[in-house]
Simulated scan of single mutants.
Amino acid sequence: MNARRLARSGRMGALVVVALLSAASPRLASAQTEQEVARARALFIEGAERARQGRWEEARALYARSFAIKPAPITRYSLGVAQKETGRVADALASFRAFLAEPATPTTAPYAGPARQAIAALERRVGRATISVTPGHVGGLTLAMDGEPLRAASDQAVELDPGAHEIVARAPGFRDAAVQFRIDAGRSIELRIALTPETAAVHPIMDARGGLPPVAEASSASPDRTAPIVVMGVGAALFAGGAVLGLAGLDQASRAASRDGAEATAARTKGIVGDVLGGLGVATAGAGLFLLLKQPAPGPLRAGSVTPWWGPSGAGVALHL
Rank of each mutant, 00 (worst) to 15 (best):
P172A: 10
Q156G: 04
A267E: 01
S132R: 13
P214K: 10
G249Q: 03
Q35A: 15
L247G: 09
G274H: 03
G80Q: 05
R192Q: 06
R268E: 01
E190V: 10
E263R: 13
V317M: 11
R60W: 08
A201Y: 11
G136L: 10
L141N: 05
L277C: 01
P103T: 12
R116D: 07
P149A: 13
M232G: 04
E102P: 00
A169G: 02
G233D: 12
A264H: 04
V17F: 12
R97E: 14
V16M: 13
Q83R: 05
I74E: 04
R27C: 01
A94D: 04
S78T: 13
D275H: 12
D91A: 06
P103W: 07
L289F: 15
L319V: 15
R8W: 09
A120M: 00
G186W: 07
G80A: 12
I45F: 05
L301D: 14
L143S: 04
H320A: 10
S9P: 06
K270Q: 12
A201E: 12
E36T: 10
V234Y: 11
A171H: 06
G311K: 04
R116G: 11
H137E: 11
A109E: 13
V81W: 02
P162E: 00
R302A: 13
L160R: 04
L122Q: 02
D275N: 13
S220N: 13
A68K: 11
G314V: 04
A315Q: 11
A297S: 07
A318H: 14
A171L: 08
R116T: 12
L319T: 06
F99G: 09
G286H: 00
T307M: 12
P204T: 01
P172H: 12
R125Q: 15
P214T: 09
A112F: 05
G54A: 03
A82I: 00
H165F: 03
K70A: 14
E57W: 02
G54C: 00
V89L: 11
A243L: 06
G279Q: 02
G163A: 02
E46R: 02
S188V: 08
Q35D: 11
E217V: 09
G286V: 12
R76W: 00
F290I: 15
A82T: 06
I189K: 00
G186N: 15
A82Y: 06
A218G: 07
G186K: 15
E49A: 10
P135S: 02
G246D: 00
R76L: 02
A315G: 08
G249C: 10
R255Q: 14
R209M: 05
R151Y: 02
P197M: 07
D184E: 15
G233P: 03
K84D: 13
A218C: 08
V244I: 15
P296Y: 01
A171R: 07
L195W: 09
P197L: 09
R151A: 10
F44Q: 03
G311R: 05
E85H: 08
P223D: 00
S258I: 06
L160S: 05
A153K: 13
V273L: 01
A297M: 07
L301S: 14
T108L: 01
A285Q: 14
E57Y: 04
L245I: 11
G241H: 07
E159F: 09
T86L: 00
A98K: 09
A31H: 09
R5K: 09
G47N: 01
R268T: 04
Q53N: 12
R4F: 13
L160C: 09
M1A: 08
A51C: 08
T105W: 00
S78V: 09
A98C: 04
F99I: 07
R182H: 05
A257C: 12
